[in-house]
Simulated assay, not measured.
Amino acid sequence: MRWLHSAIGFAFTLAWTAGWITLALLVRVFSGPQARLPLRMAARCWAPGLLAGAGASLQVEGQARIDWSKPHLFVANHQSVIDICALFRAIPVPLRFLLKEEMKKMPFVGWYAAATGMLFIVRDDRRAGPLLRRQAAAMLARGQSLCLFPEGTRSRSGEVAPFKAGALQSAIDAGVEIVPVALHGAGQVLPAGGFRVRPGTIRLGFGTPLPVRVDGRPVPRQALAEQAQAQVLAMLRDWA
């Protein structure tokens, strides 16, 4: 019967996503260039519905550590596509993501991402990096928060890969704090590869924000990457 549950979940996911994105795109036409309302629709409507449809409960910790009046670069470990739902739901401000270029080709999801100002990266293209970092820095400097997965891809084993330092340069350039985010349980609810939903609990924790300047000098991005990963690993160990 598990296959039937997954098939129903997949059909629900497609229908729910198509419906809410269609509505969000219509709202986007009238909401102005910042697209705040369509982004908040993802957090308040689309993401909770998909989490509930998957039978996932979300536990959030550490929100009080964050000054939500300021923009941040959120860096999270990556276990599952449902990570995005958890992050949308847990972060109480309009949030944009850095997505792989292939997402642009996906009906509805790609349209929504482009319309709301998400950023896209062409993997394995060294020339794309500098432009992307400038775009991300400009977004953060405008007061918009951004989330990315510095491992570069989803973990199939649950192990956290080293955080790529280049992805954090945009925060240094914009002068905004980096917030480590730990995700646990998402890979069990919706494992990488295929669509096999398993009800469960997803835990999401916010670490201590990392300043990108100390004594007026920029912190090396490799050091920031290592500090962010260390905080994520520490939270995951506490939950094990």
Score class of each variant (00 low, 15 high):
P33Q: 01
V122C: 08
A11S: 14
V109F: 12
M139F: 01
S6Y: 13
V29L: 15
S6W: 15
V109T: 08
K104A: 13
Q135A: 14
G110D: 12
W20L: 07
A7D: 09
A43F: 08
A64E: 15
A113L: 06
F88I: 05
I91T: 14
M41R: 01
I84P: 08
S80D: 07
W68I: 13
P71L: 00
P94R: 03
T17H: 05
A114Q: 14
A113R: 04
Q63V: 11
E61Q: 15
R127D: 09
L39D: 00
G55L: 01
R127Q: 13
F97E: 07
G32M: 03
L131N: 11
S31V: 02
E101P: 12
A11T: 14
L140D: 04
R134H: 10
D124P: 04
L51Q: 06
A47R: 04
G9A: 09
A43Y: 05
P33S: 09
I82K: 00
M106Y: 09
S31I: 03
I66E: 01
L37G: 06
M118K: 02
K105E: 07
A42K: 06
S6E: 13
M41S: 08
A137C: 09
W46T: 01
I121R: 04
P94E: 04
L26T: 13
P130H: 09
I21S: 00
Q34V: 07
E101L: 15
A15I: 07
L132Q: 10
F97R: 02
A90E: 12
G53V: 05
A64F: 05
G19M: 05
G19H: 00
V81H: 10
L140W: 02
R126F: 11
G110M: 12
A137Q: 02
P92W: 11
A114P: 00
I8D: 01
F74Y: 15
L87H: 05
R44H: 11
A90Y: 11
S80G: 12
A47Q: 02
A137W: 04
A24F: 10
E61P: 06
A76Y: 00
A137L: 05
Q79V: 10
I82H: 00
A15M: 07
G129L: 15
H78M: 12
W111C: 03
A24I: 09
S80P: 09
G110E: 09
K70G: 01
F74R: 04
A137P: 09
P38H: 06
Q34T: 14
N77W: 08
L25G: 14
N77L: 03
S31F: 07
G9I: 04
A64H: 15
G49W: 03
I21K: 01
A76T: 04
R126W: 13
C85G: 07
L50I: 15
A114N: 10
E101V: 14
F88V: 00
V109L: 15
T22A: 11
P48D: 02
V81Y: 06
A43T: 07
G32C: 06
L119D: 10
A56M: 00
I84K: 01
L51A: 08
D67H: 02
R89Y: 10
A43I: 05
Q79P: 10
F108G: 06
T116P: 12
S57T: 12
V60R: 10
E101I: 14
K70S: 11
R40T: 13
F88S: 05
P92D: 08
L140A: 04
F74H: 00
P130Q: 09
